[in-house]
Design a protein around this nucleic acid. Structure first.
Lengths: 208, 208, 208, 208
DNA sequence: AATGAATGAGGGTTCATTCAT
DNA sequence: TATGAATGAACCCTCATTCAT
């Protein structure tokens, strides 16, 4: 039972995180200054420190804001009674939607490796791995049941998440492609790459 | 025929670019200091400026070192007499090899948008587009000749380059996968997504 | 009615400008470092930047502190009901007094041409021209009414301001001449050069 | 009997000094870099040091190039049999011509006070004083013989040299006024200020 | 006579962070 | 809650100067 006060505080915190994420996404984490974030919020630098423990902490909290809910939603999909193809489609679609909607939040962390705080870094990596493992799990299911080609699990996951995460680098709500189009197409491409009887005959492929 | 002096100077320049790229790749551009680069080269900060016009210029030259040759090599593939499937396979394979070999050079530029110098930024974007267009061209050929599924050209290119460029984020020469394995697998996945008769029947796919 | 805080802040700003001007005047703009100014104020380099936008901005603000009030005071003289001779005397006297009192502020800008910021430079030139034009206006009045010799307006203005502005190069409050003496003498010299019947007969002047 | 070699070397030295002076005059001493001077001479920084002992030495030599000859020429005027009015006219005219012709050399030294080398600074001040004393001497003669008003010697010298030296701040060979015009006018103004019976009656002058 | 390479001392500027009020 | 003021560590870059070749 959150009091009125607590609720307002929570809203303020969210507002701060969204503003920060927006700037991190637009200008990059390193190039975004605490002052810019404060200005955007009509606060002074000093005041912002009342809410936040530091710049890196801010980054981490931005990441967290979407990470946990992403994982949760993904897990409900994998735990459902859909078949593997449907699960993967749903998962991908889901990821794309979320990434496009929360574009600035989604990939605030350019490369976890450049985060100096070991504690924060390892937590981020843990969450990231947890999230990606769910995808991997779906693939594994599909292969076991024979509907997916027997790809290398880890490698395919890298292949898959590579494209998915790159969407936030070019997507724009006002751009040529809607998130629905992107999701549809990407689902098709991905299912294609997992198809057991490739339509492109091996003969036309180059020999190593 | 370059003189002895000129040759040594050229080598030195390359050495500088490689060192810089290495650090940019490991720590990120913003977090890498000019002094670190200089120290790595056993030079003083000031001395480094004898060779380079500034930090952003250094980044740009790193990018250039691989960009032009990448484009050139890719063009010879597209201009060859191979069929579209073979061309794409070769192109992808080529990209993966190069990316893995020149891992620190390949993706020095995290997001061109954060480069402040307009001149440099636009040049980078131009080269990048030139490079990616060649892939797109191959896809177009394949679609026209009916061996590739009629995907949306631009969207597929984003799908394709998204995965390819993400390799440098996780590849390590001492890691689990060799560049050959990666290239083989990625070629397979990609040709799969372009296959005209997807092996995964539409029935198992989720409905929007 | 400015608050207590605002008033203190204004005082601090003035203190900063005066300290900077003092050093600029003594050591020259280029040779004065931001750190020296900060030290003089018992501040750190970084803290000084809380008040100032940069070194050139500091110079500009020093210039501004006296420029506008100089112009205003001069204008009240030219708008008065004095006759041209009296106006010029007053103007010169005024200039000398102000220059001696605000010696470090008065000529902070050695040559506007070396200021890199176009915006700042043009503004300085505008103010300077405005100021000097008022002198020119007085001369013009005097010539029209026949009490001054018909000198070339622009050239005489250069002659006049040349001497006046050079005072700050040698004046010292503890020196041989008081500002009153200087003003008196310079007024006499200048009125002499504008006299219609030169007491030195042309015959003794050299022939070109 | 200077050898061919020595003569060439001397020419080269002059060329260097003139180039340096030109830049010092245009951009200011502090803002002019050794490299710029070298580039202008189509030399490298290192090579320039073959001819010059350092930057401040360069400044000093620039000053010297005109200082001594100025003094000499001025002395021939004061030693001539002209009357004081003619002497002063000649001296002023001479100064103006020289200043305009050697505009970049004439006032290379913005303020002797900012020269760090004590030795160089005092030598410059000595030469400057020597030069200005000659003017003062002429004035003294004129006063003694009754053709000049009995002005304060030192103060008038400051008045006089103030204007004269300021010419180099605005004169341009392509500007509105020729050096002849300037010289003529300035001579007139100055003789006017020394006139014994000022044409502007005291009554119109303001009372202190 | 000339140069390429290197140096080192600083100079201006930025910025995350702290803290008294 | 919020702020103004201050800090200090770093960072990018400049430049006069030196020196082996």
């Amino acid at each position: 039972m959150a009091s009125f006060r607590e609720q307002r505080a929570e809203e303020r915190k969210q507002q701060i995180l969204r503003t920060a994420a927006e700037l991190f996404h637009t200008k990059g984490y390193q190039s975004t200054t605490i002052e810019e974030i404060a200005n955007e919020l009509k606060l002074t630098k000093g005041s912002l420190y009342y809410y936040v423990n530091g710049k890196e902490d801010l980054l981490f909290q931005c990441h967290n804001l979407v990470a946990q809910s992403s994982i949760d939603r993904l897990r409900t999909i994998v735990d459902s009674s859909l078949n593997p193809g449907q699960k993967l489609s749903e998962a991908v679609r889901h990821h794309v939607y979320y990434e496009c909607e929360e574009i600035s939040m989604f990939n605030v962390i350019e490369k976890p490796a450049w985060i100096s705080s070991l504690e924060i870094r390892s937590q981020i990596l843990k969450q990231r791995d947890e999230y990606e493992s769910i995808f991997q799990q779906i693939i594994a299911e599909g292969i076991k049941s024979g509907v997916f080609a027997p790809v290398d699990l880890k490698l395919f996951r890298l292949f898959l998440l590579g494209t998915l995460n790159s969407i936030s680098r070019w997507y724009s709500p006002t751009g040529k492609y809607s998130k629905e189009e992107i999701a549809d197409s990407f689902v098709t491409y991905i299912l294609g790459s997992l198809s057991v009887n490739p339509g492109v005959s091996p003969s036309i492929r180059s020999t190593p």
